[in-house]
Computed example of a mutant assay.
Amino acid sequence: MTLEFLFYLAAGACAGGFVNGLAGFGTSLFALGWWLQVMPPVQAVAISLVMSVASGLQGVVLVHRSIDWRRLSRFMIPAVIGVPIGIGFLADVNPMHLKLVVAGFLILYGGFFAFRRSLPKLTRPTPVIDMGVGFIGGILGAIGGLSGALPTMWCSMRPWSKMEQRAVLQPFNVVILSLATGLLWIKGGYDLETTLSIAAAFPVTLISAQVGITVFKRLTDDHFRRLLIVLMLISGLVLLLRELPWDVFTNG
C-alpha cells in the first residue's frame, strides 16, 4: 500500500465512520468518494459494507434500550423479504438509473424541508406504510446499497425522539447491509488485498464513529431531525454527482 492509498483509505474511513456515528447511516455515501479515487468499485463497495456494519453495530449498542421490537419488525421483516427480490431485479434494472432516481427524491425532500421552520410530523400510526417503506428499503439495499434512503426520509417525518428514530434506522441498516456483505463474500468480493485494506480502515472507522456518537448525544430531538433532513439533501447531491455520466458532458 502506498502513502497516497493509505491517505485516501483513512480519509474515507474517517468521513464514513463519523457520519454513521452521528446519524446512523451514510458510511458508503461519504466514504466511497474517497475510496473510488484509489481502488476499483467492487473493492471500494466491499470495504464500505464492512465499515458500515462495524460502525453501525456501535450505534445499535447505543440505542439498544430504546428499540421498540414491534415497530422495528414492521420495517425489518419486509426488508429481509425485499433483499432477494432486489437481487432478482439486478439483471433487469440499471443501478445507475435507480440511484439517480433516489438521488432526485433525496434532493427534493431534503431541499424542501431543510430551510422550513416547521418540520413535517405524522402522528397517526401507519403500520402498512412502515412495512412498505421497509420492503422497498430492502430492495434498494440489494440493488444499489441504498437501504437507508427511504426509511430515513420516512422516520424524519415521525414525531419520534432522536433515540426512537435511530432505534429503527440503525438496526435496520446493520441487518440489510450485513446480508449484502454476505452476498458479496459468496461472490468472492473479499480477496487478500481487500481484507488488508479493511484491517487498516477498521480502527479509523471505529474511532470516528465514536466521535460521531459523542456529537449525537449532544443534539436535541429537533436538531437531530433537522440533521437527518440536511444529510439527506447532501447525500442526494453526493449520489447525483457520483452517478452522473460526466463523459457525456465532456465529450459532447
Rank of each mutant, 00 (worst) to 15 (best):
G86F: 06
H64C: 10
T123M: 12
H97K: 13
G132P: 08
L240G: 07
L57Y: 05
I143A: 10
V38A: 06
A79N: 00
V80G: 01
H223E: 13
V248G: 05
R218D: 11
Q58C: 04
F112N: 06
F105V: 14
L100Y: 14
M39C: 04
D130Y: 08
Q170N: 10
A199E: 08
P245W: 13
L62Y: 05
V50S: 07
W34M: 01
A10N: 05
A46T: 02
F224R: 00
F18H: 00
L100I: 14
V50Q: 01
R166T: 07
V238P: 02
A13H: 03
P171K: 03
F202Y: 15
A209R: 01
G56C: 07
G16F: 06
G104R: 11
L239I: 14
W246L: 12
P40H: 06
S48D: 10
R242Y: 11
F112G: 03
G138R: 00
A91G: 09
A149E: 04
P203V: 06
L90C: 10
I234Y: 12
N20H: 11
L57Q: 05
G148D: 11
G148R: 01
F113M: 03
L98C: 10
T2L: 01
L237W: 04
L240R: 11
G138H: 06
R242K: 14
S28M: 13
S235W: 06
